[in-house]
Nucleic acid binder design. Structure first.
Lengths: 159, 159
DNA sequence: TATTGTTATACTCTATAACTATA
DNA sequence: TATAGTTATAGAGTATAACAATA
């Protein structure tokens, strides 16, 4: 009845619906912990390792270098990150997360993943495992690899 | 090595990366067929069945009623949809897809899904099946159901 | 008075360009 | 002159408010 003549809906359409729902689920959590979406993304990136320049951080999280400045200001103001001038090159700002930033990140992430897990619990175990494996695999690929992979074999040949 | 101490990355983070890549893959296809993203979404919705008001269509695709007007103008101009006044209520505009609209939609969708399938082909069959089952199940749920599902049991009780 | 569609306005987000300071 | 960071400006996308036609 809700099936459609053998076809399936477009991947992007389905994923964007899921994304919107996830946004509705997770934004209140971020609010409760006092971090913005981009702030959380920055903390997630810095949790792995410090970064030597803001441009590199922006690149790493898929943002523009001008776009994250306000976010960095807020995080610094809140004591969640530190920005120090690189003594070797006083133009650059060494970015790192503070202990407090680590705590805020991990408590926020715990809440987020707890909700995500409750959502995933609705799925049959096999589907849940396949779903996680799949998005982990796909999201690990550089975007250009994905774009290339979607092209017909030998397709789009330059000449 | 690329694994992280037992944890997993956030669902929303992974999904948004995949979404961006999908956008890069699919936008050129839409361009090639001369339809905008929202135009394609509208055609997809009208392909199922006609709609009696623009507000209802907007609601159905998760958009604002003022937001789709330009899109409807373009689609009508291109002869892909028709907008007729409802004789029974001359305020309303009956929306339906034309034969040409159907053709544009189905050729566009064929190209899109062909690329999506090439992408999915990178996955082991079990993961692919689980992934598709999972997003079909989750995207079929109304957003408020998903939000409610993510809450702790009995959580957020009103009184 | 309420509703459908439209237009006008404002607001948010993002990208581009111009500027400062270092090198 | 080139680069890191910042600020200023402009553009897209979206939402809100006001409006005209119809009920």
């Amino acid at each position: 009845m809700t099936e459609r003549d053998g076809g399936r809906r477009d991947l992007a359409a389905m994923l964007s619906q899921v994304m919107r729902a996830l946004g509705a689920v997770e934004l209140p959590v971020l609010d409760a912990h006092g971090v913005s979406m981009w702030g959380y993304v920055v903390l997630t990136a810095l949790r792995e390792s410090p970064v030597r320049t803001q441009a590199a951080l922006a690149e790493a999280i898929g943002a523009d270098k001008t776009r994250i400045i306000g976010t960095l200001d807020e995080l610094q103001e809140a004591g969640l990150i530190v920005r120090e001038r690189d003594p070797a090159d006083r133009r650059a700002r060494l970015l790192s997360i503070t202990e407090e930033g680590r705590e805020v990140h991990s408590s926020t992430q715990a809440d987020i993943q707890e909700k995500e897990n409750r959502l995933l619990a609705m799925l049959p175990p096999d589907d849940r495992r396949g779903f996680l494996n799949a998005i982990e695999a796909m999201s690990a690929l550089p975007r250009e690899d994905i774009v290339a992979m979607a092209e017909p074999p030998g397709g789009g040949a330059r000449r």
